[in-house]
Design a protein around this nucleic acid. Structure first.
Lengths: 228, 228
DNA sequence: CAAAAAATATGATAAATGTCATATTTTAAT
DNA sequence: ATTAAAATATGACATTTATCATATTTTTTG
């Protein structure tokens, strides 16, 4: 396990604002963990008491609705921090975190982070900035969920996946999602997601090979997402 | 116009974390403004360069979707701060703010707030906490928008309005919304909102007198919101 | 006050989406 | 390799919701 002060991952998140001394201190008390695909990092309602720094892999953050369906609210990947919000408000987690593939994470206990928040204004400011960005993104998602059709949201999601995860060597999106997960992201029934994916494929906007998705016509996808 | 250090409104928001000296300084450079019902405080895409402290009244924060419909993302009332996020990220506003009734607001220039964020960790921490709370709330709205029917969302909204705005003396919700605004909050067509309100009235869950809404059966509204 | 404009209301219909049933394919387990 | 289980796919149908038309009521304006 790397030492934090030598780990490049921190460049992708707020930990980059910490001083060398602070990193050394954190390095000494952090724990390392491997999570298998499908395993749950933490449950909705669980006390986390710390922050996860994602070293490898992707997980979904979801919340179960009254109707029993899981809604995926965020996808979190390498470089992202997880659990800051619950930590800041001293609350149990509002969301459930499930690994979408094999993950490697470092866990930093709460006291350490709180300590840094109190003493290093650069760190606090960076956390604040990221939170403000997340808030803007969330507002935009609310608008899309409320105003766009399922078809528009699927097109939007495909473009978002490319932006966030890029492509594999063969040109497919660099993330595997089950049809159920796709439905959970755009907020629809699994059958509807499957049907629309098939429709997109038929129209040659995308190609599907198992869980691999290829974007063939991004211009059209963009237009569909905008309702044109 | 009150001086900030004597103004009770600040108790309701992060300004309560400021010291007396800081308040005095802010008081000297703030400006006071009255906004009439229907007037726009700021537009989507507009640079705000400061923070509004709402002294009186209510406004809606909305974003226009590709389909041309406005989606209301937040309702902001007396005591709330407005514009922190844009300020923190140094971005233009992501949302449009429109007064729902006559408002009185104080405007605090950006430099002053930035100054306090840098020097007063209590203030920063309070802003951070509020932002974390907003983020949790936004995540919950995303789930509701994605997973609940329009009827469920209407029931949910009515209960939310009571919680946020309480009742007038006559027992009606202490906020006036047009049917269009109701639709804009729950993310549906105006006609659908009208129909569902009529249905709720017929079932004696609510009563309607013009723009006044009376909640007659909160238990049932709760059940409807949960899909029972 | 009268006329015009805006908001609210309601019906008819179309489109979108969910639900249930079932078939097929893929993956996992023995 | 064979069977079982899970995921994906597709059809039929019901329900929800949007859209358009139009009527009625309320509010605004001159």
């Amino acid at each position: 396990m790397d030492k934090c002060e030598q780990c490049i991952i921190r460049q992708f998140n707020s930990l980059k604002a910490l001083t060398r001394d602070e990193l050394v201190r954190i390095s000494d008390c952090k724990t390392f963990k491997t999570i298998k695909k499908g395993e749950v990092l933490f449950e909705e309602g669980q006390r986390i008491d710390g922050v996860y720094c994602i070293k490898k892999g992707v997980c979904k953050l979801s919340k179960i609705s009254d109707n029993g369906r899981d809604q995926i609210v965020h996808l979190v990947k390498r470089g992202d921090l997880l659990g800051e919000r619950s930590l800041i408000n001293n609350e149990v987690s509002n969301l459930k975190a499930t690994a979408l593939n094999e993950m490697q994470v470092c866990f930093i206990p709460k006291v350490e982070i709180i300590n840094d928040l109190k003493k290093n204004p650069n760190f606090t400011m960076d956390v604040l900035k990221n939170m403000a960005l997340s808030l803007k993104a969330s507002d935009n998602v609310i608008v899309d969920m409320a105003q766009k059709t399922v078809k528009q949201r699927l097109a939007l999601m495909l473009l978002y996946l490319e932006e966030k995860f890029q492509f594999r060597e063969n040109g497919s999106l660099n993330i595997y999602l089950s049809r159920e997960d796709v439905a959970s992201i755009i907020g629809t029934a699994t059958e509807s997601a499957i049907r629309l994916l098939a429709e997109f494929k038929k129209k040659e906007l995308i190609n599907l090979k198992g869980k691999e998705i290829f974007l063939l016509n991004k211009t059209s996808l963009k237009q569909i997402s905008e309702g044109l």
